[in-house]
């Protein structure tokens, strides 16, 4: 990979990490359970991009398999929490 592209990728990794930290603050503050789950959802979907970026920089395809399972588990987690809120709280 050429050097300029690699530098831009590293900068965007930093920006994504900053964004995830700011979202995590909402996860800590969040007044209700709904706000926390929203922060969790946004955080996991955002980190899909970060994992893919690491896979590209390290040139390892196996990380992408990890990536889609991670996305699937986050989806199921949010749906299950939604069902939990609906039935009993």
């Amino acid at each position: 990979m050429n050097e300029i592209a690699q530098t831009i990728l590293l900068i965007s990794a930093g920006v994504m990490l900053l964004a995830l930290v700011i979202i995590f603050l909402r996860f800590i503050i969040g007044p209700t359970i709904t706000n926390r789950v929203i922060a969790f959802d946004t955080m996991t979907v955002g980190s899909l991009g970060l994992i893919a970026l690491i896979a590209v920089i390290e040139q390892r395809q196996i990380y992408l398999d990890v990536n889609i399972i991670y996305g699937l588990l986050s989806f199921i987690a949010v749906v299950v929490i939604g069902k939990y809120i609906e039935k009993s709280l």
Partner: peptide
């Protein structure tokens, strides 16, 4: 090379969109 730079810039745009989302959440 030019394709790689275009791709890297799109990744940067994506990360900026995520940053704006994080500000919006607050």
């Amino acid at each position: 090379d030019i394709l790689q730079i275009i791709g890297a810039s799109m990744v940067l745009i994506g990360s900026l969109v995520l940053l704006i989302a994080s500000i919006g959440l607050h």
